[in-house]
């Protein structure tokens, strides 16, 4: 049972969260080539180790970036998506 830290609410139980997508993806558009669109839509880095992912804390409804390790499950930190995007 993970304790995930929401940047707004602090440590909360994993059942309050939803994994959205790995961080850093840029949405394509109708002008994307078939390969580019497939990459956006379906392909993942699926990193074994330290990852950055977009999660939502369902209780407060905010999306945020979660840094964690996909093998050890250690949580390294989180930040609001906006802040991450501005940085």
């Amino acid at each position: 049972m993970h304790l995930i830290c929401c940047p707004f609410c602090g440590n909360r139980d994993e059942t309050e969260f939803r994994f959205a997508v790995e961080a850093g993806k840029r949405r394509g558009s109708v002008s994307s080539s078939p390969d580019e669109w497939a990459k956006y839509l379906y392909f993942q880095n699926n990193v074994k180790g330290d990852t950055r992912e977009v999660w939502m804390h369902l209780t407060c409804g905010e999306l945020f970036i979660l840094s964690r390790n996909s093998v050890t499950h250690s949580i390294h930190g989180s930040e609001p998506v906006r802040k991450a995007a501005e940085a």
Binding site: H2, E14, T15, V71, T72, H73
Partner: peptide, 13 residues
């Protein structure tokens, strides 16, 4: 399990 993982172990929920 609800969380992407490579941990080869289960989770109570």
């Amino acid at each position: 399990d609800r969380i992407p993982s490579y941990a080869q172990r289960g989770n109570p929920p």
